[in-house]
């Protein structure tokens, strides 16, 4: 498709991924690489980080949705991402409700009102 848009990727627990895949965001490309990662109990942080970085490197991904508790595990990688595309959105998970004070974007916005900025 010539004017094809970008994809939405998701890194989350089983229910989050199942829900978003039901919503129609899932893709398995020609190399059978998915645009989602189901994080289980035995999924290592390295694997999560590598997947996140591979999603950042793919130019067919426009938005990355990630459960906030997983984002906490790879916070340094998320904070290091400064580009607008792909946009990273932290979403709640079943066991961990959304906490705005942990959100990278809101923390950056909050940083606006730090003492340093008013000097």
């Amino acid at each position: 498709m010539a004017g094809r848009g970008k994809l939405i990727a998701v890194i989350g627990d089983e229910d989050t991924c199942t829900g978003f895949l039901l919503g129609g965001i899932g893709e398995l490309n020609k190399n059978r690489k998915p645009n989602f990662l189901v994080v289980e109990k035995d999924t290592s942080i390295t694997e999560i980080e590598e997947t996140f970085k591979s999603f950042l490197a793919r130019n067919d991904i426009g938005i990355i949705l990630i459960n906030q508790f997983i984002a906490e595990m790879i916070r340094h990688a998320i904070d290091g991402h400064m580009q607008s595309i792909p946009a990273v959105l932290e979403i709640p998970s079943k066991e961990h409700p959304y906490d705005a004070s942990k959100d990278s974007i809101l923390r950056r916005a909050k940083g606006m009102f730090s003492a340093e900025d008013f000097r």
């Binding site: 848009g5 939405i8 426009g62």
Partner: peptide, 26 residues
């Protein structure tokens, strides 16, 4: 209702278009 039921061939049904505006917003 689990990851075991995912199809072997998955095609996206939603695409997102990112457009950079003059103001720098996306």
């Amino acid at each position: 209702v689990s990851a075991l039921q995912y199809a072997s061939e998955i095609e996206p049904l939603v695409y997102v278009h990112a457009r950079t505006l003059d103001t720098g917003d996306v």
